[in-house]
């Protein structure tokens, strides 16, 4: 059975078509990145999946059912939504214990989950004093309570420090690849999930623009080699069949030639290269092209 299935989902808020005929699936044992710029419709899709938003058309199913009809939702689906949804005066432990009570889970799960997300030391502290990163960890702790096999996370890396992001990547991979869970994780920053995800679904302006494995996606992006040299090396490269882009004085981006070939050419032409670097799949560029984001956004990152 497909863990997550979205079929022809559509949802409008007033005149805005937030999600327009989106369909994709997430299988057990994989991490799927749900990518798109802010306002693309990611959150609406995920909230439809969790029964918080009623779609206008289509279906969003978990384990073949609508979320609202699950008898024990926390045992089937773990969700991490925006980080602000805690009562500031309540402690982390109490927050999770209330979830346990309502879901019929033993209260001991609260401390176990806090341990798992590295918040054991802050268990008795009020959430009002938590950093954004700690709130994200607490939200993740809530998702883990029922040991579900499906995880739905909306921008979970927001507010995490680099170490936290690193930890999250490993944790999501562990859930999917070691425990066989289906993980759907949204992000507006491709680089955040690039090293984590197996599959990618890209959405822009409410419409699905691409879906496939990460490898399939990167094939569309041409790989390039950065070459730094003060010599006039471009004609020689072009003669050898490369396409050369002059990035700045002394820095070339070379398409269509391997780094080794470029090195050989440099030797043949007695040109000094101060840098030769393979620019791995220009995934970010592909992403920006697909989602129609102005490239300026890249610089703003």
């Amino acid at each position: 059975m497909t863990a997550i299935e979205i079929r022809n989902l559509a949802k409008s808020f007033g005149p805005v078509r937030a999600v327009d005929d989106v369909s994709f699936t997430v299988e057990a044992g994989t991490v799927t990145g749900y990518l798109g710029p802010n306002g693309a419709g990611k959150t609406t899709t995920l909230r439809s999946l969790l029964g918080l938003v009623t779609p206008d058309a289509g279906e969003a199913l978990v384990n073949g059912q609508r979320y609202a009809s699950l008898a024990h939702p926390l045992n089937e689906v773990g969700a991490v939504l925006e980080a602000t949804s805690f009562h500031p005066g309540r402690t982390a432990r109490n927050h999770l214990r209330i979830m346990c009570t309502a879901a019929g889970l033993p209260a001991t799960r609260a401390d176990e989950a806090l341990e798992q997300v590295g918040l054991a030391d802050a268990a008795g502290k009020r959430v009002g004093g938590f950093s954004l990163g700690m709130r994200q960890r607490l939200a993740l702790g809530g998702a883990l309570l029922g040991n579900p096999k499906i995880y739905i996370l909306d921008e979970p890396a927001n507010g995490l420090d680099p170490a936290g992001i690193q930890w999250l990547r490993g944790f999501l991979r562990h859930l999917a690849h070691d425990q066989g869970a289906a993980v759907l994780v949204s992000s507006h920053v491709l680089a955040e999930v690039e090293q984590t995800v197996d599959n990618v679904v890209i959405i822009a302006k409410g419409r699905l623009v691409r879906q496939g494995t990460l490898a399939e996606l990167t094939q569309n992006g041409e790989s390039a080699v950065r070459v730094r040299t003060t010599a006039d090396f471009a004609p020689a490269l072009e003669e050898a069949g490369a396409r050369v882009e002059k990035v700045e004085p002394g820095l070339l981006r070379v398409y269509g030639l391997e780094a080794e070939t470029i090195g050989q050419l440099a030797l043949d032409h007695k040109v000094l290269l101060t840098e030769v670097a393979h620019e791995r799949s220009d995934l970010q560029k592909v992403f920006l092209e697909l989602t129609g984001e102005p490239v300026a956004a890249e610089a703003a990152q």
Binding site: G51, L52, P73, L81, S85, F86, H87
Partner: peptide
């Protein structure tokens, strides 16, 4: 109303969708 004020209603309805 504090469920709406602090948006804890999201978690409440995730735990109890009915």
């Amino acid at each position: 109303t504090s469920e709406y004020r602090y948006q804890t209603i999201t978690g409440t309805f995730l735990t109890t969708p009915r």
